[in-house]
């Protein structure tokens, strides 16, 4: 069954991804992805450099973050990324019902990420660790909030693809679907950089 589907995917995909001008999702989305990754990585490197000036404060602040919540949030994003990738595979072989179902699962995990992040933020604010508490928490709030904004934009894109597939009069194009999923995976990639540097290495 799986082999048959994989064969169908190879046949259905007509875009030559090996061409430098046509990576999966298109050139523009990949330029956006690289720019976003570079922006976040510069901020993370600045954060790590700042930690050298006051190692004790960064260590103590880092211990205030809940690794458990961060881990569950990582799992939510990974499950969402897997669901989006599976949804795209089904879309390529024109199994739109299966594709929509997995897209819905991806959206659900995205919402769960936002809900858990909100719980974490409320807890941080209740315990007094706001954006101005110290340098560590200034970076924490700026980096994670900037990431959450990307997740929200990604969710809007996924929801619009879902509704277009379900109720839209214009047929969803493969290139648009791929670009939307690439943006969603980018949120995953950014989180995979943020999570160890903010939560784990202190």
């Amino acid at each position: 069954m799986l082999h048959a589907e994989q064969g169908s995917i190879k046949k259905a995909s007509t875009i030559n991804y090996k061409n430098i001008t046509t990576p999966p999702g298109g050139v523009l989305i990949w330029l956006v992805i690289y720019l976003e990754l570079i922006t976040f990585s510069i901020a993370l490197i600045a954060f790590v450099i700042a930690s050298k000036e006051n190692q004790l404060m960064f260590h103590e602040s880092g211990m205030q973050l809940q690794v458990g919540l961060g881990t569950v949030n990582t799992l939510f994003l990974l499950l969402s990324g897997f669901s989006v990738a599976t949804s795209l595979s089904y879309f390529k072989i024109k199994k739109n019902n299966d594709s929509s179902r997995f897209l819905l699962v991806a959206i659900l995990f995205g919402f769960l990420f936002i809900v858990l992040k909100t719980i974490e933020y409320i807890h941080k604010l209740d315990t007094g660790y706001g954006i101005g508490y110290n340098t560590f928490f200034s970076y924490y709030w700026l980096l994670t909030l900037f990431h959450v904004i990307h997740v929200l934009v990604g969710l809007v894109i996924l929801i619009s693809i879902y509704f277009n597939m379900q109720y839209g009069k214009i047929k969803t194009k493969l290139e648009d679907f791929e670009a939307g999923t690439a943006f969603w995976h980018m949120c995953d990639l950014i989180w995979l950089l943020l999570f160890p540097v903010l939560y784990l290495i202190w």
Binding site: Y17, P23, P24, Y34, L78, L192, P196, L200
Partner: peptide, 30 residues
């Protein structure tokens, strides 16, 4: 921890984002 994070990053990019199918330039850039 950082090497494992980098490995996870590459799995997502190459497998879920299908970068493995893209031109070598995109792969080497990442």
């Amino acid at each position: 921890v950082l090497l494992l994070a980098a490995f996870k990053f590459l799995i997502v990019a190459f497998q879920f984002m299908e970068l493995k199918k893209a031109h070598k330039v995109w792969q080497w850039m990442l």
